[in-house]
Design a protein around this nucleic acid. Structure first.
Lengths: 219, 219
DNA sequence: ATTATCTATAGATCTATAGATAATGC
DNA sequence: ATTATCTATAGATCTATAGATAATGC
């Protein structure tokens, strides 16, 4: 692997593990056993590294959210979308953690992220519409569908923060992909009232697969 | 006002305006025209300041979420809960922005915040149950109600991040309380399918008051 | 010749404290 | 006497670059 790619790879790893805020260019260089000077030869600064990593994330999610235009959606499609999106969130989990700061520090990223969000919202909206066509959920007026799509987005993008802040033990936050995917349970909860009788049972069974195993801490 | 209180007040102000990450103890002292030494006489470090501010926030939200046990809930109660919670979010908006880092840096705060979250989730759950009793929404099995409460929490706590990251213009994020309260529209969207015929119209009218005025950016 | 890497470091912060001095309360 | 404040600074980072050196490609 070229040094430039190694830097991107290690940065992602360190950012995810320790949080972007806790990782400096020195840490990244030290982790790769290269000099800081070398790192700065390949990237102008930390923002540039983050920008490149975001581009990877964006491409991945755009790829996951492709929507077939020649056939109806199936339950398998729905399961794939949910699994994939949470896989993506997991692989680039540092991004959503410090997102506001990152966007404040980099105008390019701000614009790009805004467009990305709108594209995702559009995709969720289309998925809802096509689930209506496929008879999985009842059709909804456009306005309700938009608001529901936005709620789905809010739940998806906030689930990890919830796990890390509310759920974690005193010992510090150790998050697993399994826990993260319990977010799917929450997303499907949003759809329950709209399920059609023909698909209700199957969707509820899908949802059940992601039910949190461990009891929540006492309320 | 005593210096100690001035420090808390100014810190909150600066944190909200610029983000906790961008505000150092030096900035706070300079803003108050006192010496850094003086600041450290009153607080051991920045974490201590944040902890005290969190205690204020916690007390405020706990106060807002009190639930009457001698009468049924009304629509006015519902409107009050929603308005108040978003007011609280606004006044202490820096907290949710850098929450994960703050909890990682302060174990006391981590435990305290976890308990706070669970208390809030419990309150939302109880409010749902009492709205069922009052006939505003249909009664729900406990399990669905818990999952719905959690979704309400996720939408509430993530709405501001959404505004700041996705909605903001290139010119940088200028967020208003009015925009923030459009989150109420999203929260009430979650309840639509559960509304009873007798209250449906009134709740939809309440929701309508918070509909975003400006069109969302094109998707 | 060009590309990649290292050494060394200037300059900018930031945190937190020691020790002196001023203000206040009894 | 005690409480509040200031001055001055040590020590710890971190970013980013200049300039030297090594490795690579034609």
């Amino acid at each position: 692997m070229k040094t430039r790619d190694k830097i991107l790879f290690s940065s992602l790893e360190l950012f995810n593990e320790r949080g972007e805020r806790n990782v400096t260019t020195n840490h990244i260089a030290a982790h790769l056993a290269i000099s800081p000077g070398n790192l700065y030869y390949h990237f102008r600064n930390k923002s540039d590294i983050i920008y490149e990593i975001f581009l990877e994330y964006e491409a991945l999610v755009d790829y996951y959210l492709r929507i077939p235009d020649d056939r109806l959606l199936t339950l398998e499609d729905l399961a794939f979308y949910l699994e994939s999106v949470f896989d993506g969130l997991w692989s680039y989990r540092f991004l959503h953690r410090d997102l506001e700061f990152l966007l404040d520090s980099d105008g390019r990223l701000r614009v790009r992220y805004r467009d990305f969000t709108n594209r995702c919202l559009g995709a969720i909206n289309t998925i809802f519409a096509k689930m209506g066509e496929a008879g999985i959920i009842q059709g909804q007026p456009e306005e309700l569908r938009s608001a529901m799509s936005l709620n789905v987005w809010l739940v998806i993008t906030n689930w990890m923060a919830f796990l890390r802040t509310a759920h974690a033990s005193e010992n510090g936050p150790s998050l697993s992909l399994t826990e993260l995917k319990q977010g799917i349970y929450q997303v499907l909860t949003l759809e329950i009232p709209y399920l059609t009788p023909g698909f209700r049972e199957d969707v509820m069974a899908l949802r059940e697969k992601y039910r949190p195993r461990l009891p929540e801490p006492a309320v």
